[in-house]
Amino acid sequence: MATLLQIVTPEGKVFSDKVDLVVVPGAEGELGLLSLHAPLVTTLKPGELRYTKDGQEHVFAVGSGLLEVTQDSVAVLSDLAVNEKDIDEAAVEKALEAARKAYEERPDDAHPEDIVALQLAIQKAMAQLSVRRRRHHL
């Protein structure tokens, strides 16, 4: 029996399909979810979400957020969700490089908001990269 996996962000529904197994980075550690799981709500850490459908494993990079599990569905609410296939390693690396450079060379009177924005950009890029790299070298 399959469970319905939904990944939604405020900018739209990223994924919705019946899958066999979902492994998510929960706040208390990784969670493997099958159908008929007890109803559960927990928080998510940024990391990689894996799901198995028809014996094939797929990966998403997800940001922090929430997880809601009912008997027949798994819903992930996150502010970032990118399919592993859609991660453009070169582009992300370039963005990371630019963000790091801007961060290191920031003027002393830089606005705190700008610094936070840069730190965020770096974190996001690194999450995407780590997912991509691990997949690649398996």
Partner: peptide
């Protein structure tokens, strides 16, 4: 759709989850 009469299990507990949810709700 929903947890049924038993309600959700909150992990680690409802207060901690609430702490994450409220800022998201505000955003």
């Amino acid at each position: 759709h929903g947890p049924g009469p038993a309600g959700y299990i909150f992990e680690p507990d409802a207060a901690t989850v609430l702490e994450t949810v409220v800022p998201q709700y505000v955003n």
